[in-house]
Design a protein around this nucleic acid. Structure first.
Lengths: 197, 197, 197, 197
DNA sequence: CATGAATGAGTTTTCATTCAT
DNA sequence: TATGAATGAAAACTCATTCAT
């Protein structure tokens, strides 16, 4: 019975997850409006109606997805930086975290990039955005105070580093570059030289 | 008759142009599937049926739009580089060209970025992509032969420089950065340091 | 065991009753098609599946409800008339019974009125209708034989008296009239004058 | 060309009318929630999408329908009363107007009756209701001032007379009574006796 | 050529009903 | 027996496309 209940619960738990997973992949591939709810349900292996037991609407679904992945991404980036390490090492770790995240969840990176500032994102999603941006800006400002990073607007640092990273990811996805440790290391050096003093 | 035909053609050109213009703005704002043909027609100031006189279908419209702007963008970037100028100067001009293009046609940049590799783009659009990429790659390779740019895959150079540029553009659009000559110059320096030897 | 069965039955009865109660209110408020089975279950305080233990389908539920209330209504009207009383007194009692019933079960009156001759009512519901109508027609015919009520089709007498009554009930529900003993007495007089010789 | 344009326009005009007509019949038969938009479109002889060119939503459709018929009904009742005629004659005319209206538009009467105070009716529909009620109340009050009608709340007079009328109409629809001039005259007399001094 | 009303295929969403627990 | 999560058929509504004018 315990086993049976466990299976039951696992099923329950999995359903929401399966829907989010399927939605992430499809939204990343075809965009929000280019994806139908039955397609999401199909790929998640559930009935179309089931999607609506877990999410009020298709919009609620993208928003939940956006918030979950944005938060996860933020955690992945800043959660494990060693404040004792050298600045260059910290930057390396930061870049490494992005790389690991993108390797593990390539659809999530595509999804987040494609839905950045989309008009159907709600207040909560935008707040979530801010919550991720905040610590990164602080981190940059700290490095700037220590004359390690160029004295330019922190948002420009972010735009350049993350922009370059996304550029690499897209080129790899398009087959123009290999998505390999070597590629990422080379790109990391370029990014570092872009912003360091 | 010549005069009449000229007037006639001008009208034709204007309508087609108005439709492309409206479509660019709307596709950039809401995406391909999020935009309706009547909306495009409305904003272009023509009847919905008229769109179909100039473009076979909504897909044909995005593709025409993509090809026109991609070509235009390629022309803007590479068309006016002075081979006699210093490498740094050439990079400056290149960046300047991107900046001018983005200042003049911000919706076009958003549109191209959002529809990059979209599944509804046809063969011709992809070819167009290649045709723009080719000269840039050659330009980079030339610079690398002369030990001016780091010896890394040319596509990585492109990914980093264009990625950084798009990052700046998006940050400006989101209100995080000013879209000003100063911002662009600062960013240009960073981009240059990222790739220079 | 008898005790256990009694408790068991009481539970059964209560649940069935709770469902009928909830359904009556909701069907009266929003109509048959405007009411969902889960809503009924919710208001009855049972699970949605439970409704289907007691009623084969939503249609079976309305029909059971219609039959129960129609029968109840018929019983209330004719069950307690004193054949010895004066005709006027009998009419008074009849009207009084309607009034008492409507006071005690306003939703039932609304429900019956709204679902009168609805296409989803089955044979049995229609028979039930007849069974209620029969004694009233006889009662009217008897009064007509005694030259107390106008010699018009008994169904017209019913239509006028019950129509007027329902009119009053609706006006009261809409806030145009007070639902009070005085109102009902005044209306009774009017109704009587409408049909008396 | 004039003829052609006229045909074109007639078609246009008819389409809205055909939809309202079909909707009236179906809403009266099966209720608002029991009727589907494609059914309405089908019976109106237009495509399902066309309904939405003329009415924003199904709710907007019922409301438009309600307002049109309520207004029409009000006009039919009060529009042609001769103030010079005797009170009894005026009542006769009033009743006659109801009868004529119900004969000409039986579905409209059923529709109005069934949707009276429905929760999906909007503010404007309720105002419309009031606008029809007002003149009738005044008319009754005037008769009461002249001691022709019983000194009871005007809304009670309305409830009784209209209630009786609706009762007759329903009985006729159910096959219990003939819908004939004779039936209506008999009922008129009853209604008059119900309210006259 | 230009139009925009009309359409039906395709979306999003709801809900009666079932069934594993 | 009671439950409520799951479902898919069906409803409301949208929109790319056509075609009569």
């Amino acid at each position: 019975m315990t086993e049976a209940k466990a299976r039951y619960n696992r099923q329950i738990v999995d359903k929401r997850g399966a829907i989010l997973d399927a939605a992430c992949r499809l939204f990343a591939e075809r965009g929000f409006h280019g994806t139908t709810v039955p397609e999401v349900a199909d790929r998640a292996g559930v009935g179309a109606g089931t999607v609506y037991r877990y999410f009020e609407s298709k919009e609620a679904l993208v928003n939940a997805l956006y918030q979950e992945w944005k938060t996860e991404f933020g955690r992945a980036l800043m959660g494990k930086l060693d404040p004792q390490a050298s600045p260059r090492r910290q930057f390396h770790d930061f870049w490494q975290h992005m790389a690991e995240f993108a390797t593990k969840h390539p659809e999530a990176v595509s999804f987040l990039e494609l839905h950045h500032h989309a008009p159907y994102l709600d207040e909560k999603s935008r707040e979530c955005e801010e919550k991720v941006r905040g610590p990164i800006v602080s981190f940059i400002e700290d490095m700037q105070r220590r004359d390690i990073i160029k004295p330019i607007p922190p948002d420009m640092v972010m735009a350049i580093v993350y922009g370059a990273f996304v550029g690499i990811a897209k080129a790899a996805q398009g087959g123009y570059l290999q998505w390999s440790a070597e590629t990422l290391e080379t790109a990391e050096n370029c990014a570092w030289e872009a912003i360091r003093m």
